[in-house]
Computed example of a mutant assay.
Amino acid sequence: MIQEQDRSHQPRPGSSASAKAFVPALGIHALTRFYDGLIRGALAEDAWKGRLVERIAPAPDDVIVDLGCGTGTLAIMLKQACSSARVIGIDPDEAMLAPARDKVRAAGIEVDLRRGQADRLPLGDGSATKVVSSLVFHHMQQDTKRAALREAYRVLRPGGRLILADWAKPHDLLMRLAYLPVQIADGFPNTRDNLQGLLPVLVREAGFEGVVETYRRRTALGSLAFVEATR
């Protein structure tokens, strides 16, 4: 069963990032339908997303926000890992939310799907216990990354956890070359922070504590890492 809320939000004062168009999955809207297949095949999705669910460790009292939920794969895995946890999937792209709805229905579970921007989350202060994001932050320019991290901090309760899975500073030259297609598809300015290993720095600057990289792996498209922190 899907609980869906599509709320309109006015930009916060001084938030120029809110007005910027998001970069769609694979960089072009026409390629969105290929997203699931590419992630599953090229990035060994089952292996690292299974590890990500373990790190998130859904519990009965959790309210878990999947920021940039895309087609719902991770949100569904989180709900299946703990049926009594509340899972909220947020994404700005209706072309992603449509298949997410279908997948949730097919799985026979309840996920709260909402259309919204990462830098203007449709959630109240302190309303979540965990915020997770998977392959989303490299789509954002740096000012939007900073705004999204401040929003994640705002909606988390004290002691709440942030877990990001995204591209990281390459292991070596081979991983640097593998990352080039990501930069070409998603844009060089917004993917540069990940390339330079700045994501943990930005998380720390948003006010989070205990920022640590807990997992790294080589993939066909570059080095993938988990960054975790506490509010």
Rank of each mutant, 00 (worst) to 15 (best):
H171D: 09
G159C: 08
W167V: 01
G160Y: 06
A185D: 01
G187D: 01
L195C: 09
G159K: 06
P122V: 05
E110C: 12
G197F: 04
D119R: 05
G124C: 10
Q196C: 15
R146L: 09
S84Y: 11
Q196P: 08
L156N: 02
A85N: 08
A100M: 12
V111C: 12
R176C: 06
L135F: 14
A98F: 07
R157W: 11
A106G: 05
H138Y: 09
A85H: 08
N190P: 06
A100R: 07
S83W: 13
S83R: 14
D186E: 07
R114S: 09
D186V: 02
D93G: 01
D193R: 09
V104P: 04
A95I: 00
D172T: 02
Y179K: 04
R101S: 09
P181L: 00
L162E: 02
L135C: 13
Y153D: 01
R154K: 13
D112I: 10
A185W: 02
A165I: 11
L156S: 07
E151V: 04
M140G: 02
A152T: 01
S84C: 15
W167Q: 03
C82K: 10
L149F: 12
N194F: 09
V136K: 03
L123R: 08
D112W: 08
A147S: 08
R192C: 06
R154D: 15
R146Q: 13
D193G: 15
F188C: 03
P99C: 11
L135T: 05
E110P: 02
V132N: 04
L123G: 08
L199R: 01
K130N: 13
P181V: 05
G126D: 15
F137Q: 03
N194D: 15
P189V: 10
A98P: 02
M175F: 12
A95N: 03
H138A: 06
L199K: 00
A85I: 07
R154I: 12
P181E: 04
L123I: 12
L135V: 11
A118Q: 02
R154Y: 13
S127Y: 01
G160I: 05
G124A: 13
G160R: 01
K130S: 10
P158L: 09
K130A: 11
Q141P: 13
L173N: 08
L198C: 06
L149Y: 02
L162F: 03
E94C: 03
E110Q: 12
P181T: 01
H171V: 05
D166V: 03
L164E: 04
L180Y: 09
H171C: 06
L113T: 03
C82M: 14
A118C: 12
H138L: 06
H138G: 07
N194P: 08
A81V: 12
F188T: 04
L162A: 04
M140L: 13
V104G: 03
Q141W: 12
R157N: 13
A152I: 00
V182Q: 00
D186S: 10
K130D: 09
G160L: 09
P122T: 12
V201H: 12
N190M: 09
H139R: 05
T129M: 11
S133E: 07
D186N: 08
N190S: 15
R114L: 10
I163K: 01
L198P: 00
E151I: 05
Q183D: 12
T144C: 11
D186A: 05
I109V: 10
Q196G: 15
V203T: 10
N190Y: 05
Q183G: 14
E110N: 09
D143Q: 15
L156W: 07
